[in-house]
Design a protein around this nucleic acid. Sequence first.
RNA 1: GGCCGAGUACCCAAGUGGACUAAGGGGACGGAUUGCAAAUCCGUUAUUCAUGGGUUCGAAUCCCAUCUCGGCCUCCA
Length: 516
Amino acid sequence: MKLRIYNTLTNREEEFVPLDPAGKKVTFYSCGPTVYDYAHIGNFRSFLVADVLRRTLELIGYEVKHVMNITDVGHMTDDEIADGGGEDKMEVAAQRVAEAKKSGKLPSDVEIDPTDPYAIADFYADEFLRDARMLGLKVAIEQAEHPELMPRPTRFIEPMVGLVKALIDKGHAYVADDGAVYFDVQSFPDYGQLSGNTPDSIRSGEGGRIDEANQAFKKHPADFLLWKPDPSHIMKWPTPWGEGYPGWHLECSVMAQSLLGADTNGMIDLHSGGEDNLFPHHECELAQARGFSGADYFARYWFHGRHLMVEGDRMSKSKGNFFTLQDMLDKGASPAALRLELIKTHYRSNANFTFQGLKDSQRQVDRWAKLQDWLSEHRNVALDGPGPLSEALLAFKQALCDDLNIARAIGVLNEAASQIRTDAAPAAGTGSTTYADELDALNAMNSVLGVLDLQREAGSADKDEAAIIEAKIAQRTEARAAKDWAAADAIRDELLAMGIAIKDGPEGTTWTRMVK
RNA sequence: GGCCGAGUACCCAAGUGGACUAAGGGGACGGAUUGCAAAUCCGUUAUUCAUGGGUUCGAAUCCCAUCUCGGCCUCCA
């Protein structure tokens, strides 16, 4: 089956054809997190949307090598001035960590030297990996065995410097009078092809973000930084242009080309990132990469997801709606529900995160999980012919192959699932298929959705609270045995007020944390 | 100012010219079940697709206009 996917480079949906002549292997680079703070759910939506693409490719038979960087070189905070204004974000993070340590906000078991930017990067990188694995981000799971799949730019400084040298040699870059090295956009005629922001439109642009004072040394306002000499910078490396730090677009070109494009003249199949990466980041990456390789492409297909909104609002620090995974777990979300909530909207639409939606997703996950358990329990029971899930698998794949139409795919799954009665044992059929085949089909669908193998319960209830809850449930069980319904109901109400929902089943009473 | 998306029930959302005069999920409502609930299971829930025109035998789907919302135009996933 062929995947059709919207390619930002051409602004249309195209059939995906990998570079691999055998049509089997796929190279995929995703712009990953920066690690000077915790990732929020909007970041995770971007990464999970890429994960769904990768898993879809695998479902239809491709072998995907997926690389996602972890950016540990600090970027500048100043949003008014391009080309290295303001403070380094790693430095800001260092101050924040130092303050958190002082005020005791950081857990006491965290050993971190706030003056060491590498330690800060490591700390947040580890937090990211933990969160990402909890949400089923496959590349983060693979990273445990294959750390090279999630490279760190600070370990690629040498090839970055090499790229800058090569770009100067090829006439695509120059050392300006301020000592910095800039990419010369006018030397690369295709600049603007990806985003539509051609050098001409930038010159005449009304964005107002280009500070004239900062442009003095550049040949063209769109020229961007490749190397900034700055010995006072918190992270710095020696180069022919002085001690300093790399331009922030450099890392992706270098890592994608060396880790994925080594045998293809720097070309890769897929490149993803959030929509905000489209310009300038990806435009500049593309210019550097092709300026260096001379190839017709950097990535054949560019994949961009739209941003996540929260309760109808743009996420912003001032609105206080930047939620991290931990914030969500604290509110009673399970990783499985959160993953579903973040991936269930088409990647090219703005997704609107709502707590109602999170509850919807939790119920959806619970029902699929129940179906999975039921199928597993009756796996040896024969059907009369192919079951509904097996028959739906093709349509499920077709939906995903239609530019990742995940909502339709979920609809296909649910329609099939509703044909299976899970409230009783099935009547044995006479065909050669069994419910194990149905289970296989469900698991194949879940290989893309990726929710059933995640933690389905809200995590991290502290042990003391759990003990209190268990004790109350035991009291209630006694009251019920004595038919003291008033006492039993009072305890149930008390638990509800604590955000705990209980279920009386044949095996006894179980409890779950509700989404707050 | 330039460029680009989107408006489908109470909410999320599929459908992009006829084969079903609108999938699926949540919610709500009715029923089964339950000590009562919750959970679970069964059923019901848009003659209508932002608004006004137009094209067509036929439009949620194509075209035009209007309104509304969102994104990008050197912080950002």
